[in-house]
């Protein structure tokens, strides 16, 4: 059976400068295949600037690959006709990093839910539209009366991001690509958003590409993991495999820099995996998050240490 979404040796180069001569490689030789059979969660981990967002935008057809192709049900995204493009959008949706920028400040939050309902004819009649919106909001744990009819700046980041999840959910997609969905949200509210994403997968059978710079949440939520470093995939595989026996120095560094007991007591962590979001010790995610966000040292400084570690292991 043809996979739902497939990236085939995709490379993206941005040109900039006055004469377009300055080139930035944002993603190099990236391949990925997501099937339709069983809903899965794939985490994509990498530091800032490693090409994660570029990958997401390529997969969503918001950016065109410089080399290679992205296929939706075997068809190149660039050659989709109107009907196929509709089907593509219906099947593949996204949640972006910045929950404030995702809303047009000119409209009430209802707008982001109304547009897909109208554009895709999701509601059989007018009255059903409202019911549909309320249903989607409830599914992500929001109370419709407290959300609908408000402007984006009247809601918290967590609420806004959950509305974005509800928006994706409305379309009943087969895949949601979530680009760092919690990195711009208060630590205390992250759990709610991650929880609703996890629900999409567990309760609604939607596959998830979860992009993050935070290995801990990646480990907790995902089945498979892809590690991006300097715009290339340096490691990919089942999450247990990668965390237990990391091959690439960067991955080893990532894992070694997790300061919490979870690293050694991986058994304990495993027990928590499905319930992680509701645990009070989630505050720890914040501390990990900070560790991951400190500006990455230059590679030359970092390599020796990680290589040494590699030898010891």
């Amino acid at each position: 059976m043809t996979p739902l979404l497939q990236a085939h040796q995709v490379t993206k180069v941005f040109r900039s400068g006055m004469t377009q001569r300055k080139q930035t490689v944002a993603l190099r030789d990236f391949s990925l295949s997501i099937g339709t059979d069983a809903p899965s969660i794939i985490a994509v981990v990498g530091e800032s600037g490693s090409g994660k967002s570029t990958m997401a935008r390529l997969l969503l057809g918001l950016e065109r690959p410089t080399v290679g192709e992205v296929l939706y049900a075997g068809e190149d995204l660039r050659t989709l006709n109107r009907a196929r493009r509709r089907a593509f959008l219906n099947d593949i949706q996204a949640v972006f990093q910045d929950p404030f920028a995702s809303f047009n400040p000119f409209y009430k939050v209802d707008h982001v839910l109304e547009v897909p309902i109208n554009k895709f004819g999701l509601a059989p009649e007018r009255g059903a539209s409202r019911a549909l919106m309320e249903e989607a909001l409830q599914a992500v744990g929001l109370r419709p009366p407290e959300t609908l009819g408000r402007y984006p700046h009247q809601l918290s980041g967590g609420q806004r991001q959950r509305i974005m999840v509800a928006r994706a959910l409305l379309m009943q997609p087969k895949l949601i690509i979530a680009d760092e969905p919690v990195s711009m949200i208060d630590a205390s509210l992250r759990a709610t958003v991650l929880d609703s994403l996890r629900q999409c997968n567990e309760d609604f059978g939607i596959s998830l590409i979860y992009i993050t710079h935070d290995l801990t949440t990646a480990y907790q939520i995902s089945h498979d993991i892809i590690v991006l470093y300097a715009c290339s995939v340096v490691e990919a595989g089942a999450v247990e495999q990668v965390v237990k026996r990391p091959q690439h120095p960067y991955t080893q560094l990532l894992i070694s820099s997790i300061p919490c007991p979870t690293r050694t007591a991986s058994g304990r962590m495993k027990r928590h995996r499905l319930k992680w979001a509701r645990r009070p010790d989630l505050g720890r995610v914040a501390c990990l998050h900070r560790a991951a966000r400190t500006p990455s040292p230059p590679v030359s400084k970092r390599r020796p240490r990680s290589f040494r570690r590699g030898r010891i292991n």
């Binding site: 959008l89 990093q97 995702s102 554009k119 895709f120 974005m164």
Partner: peptide, 13 residues
Amino acid sequence: ERGFVEIARLSGM
């Protein structure tokens, strides 16, 4: 460049 334009595109506009 703002997110809502991309959201609108993904919403089929």
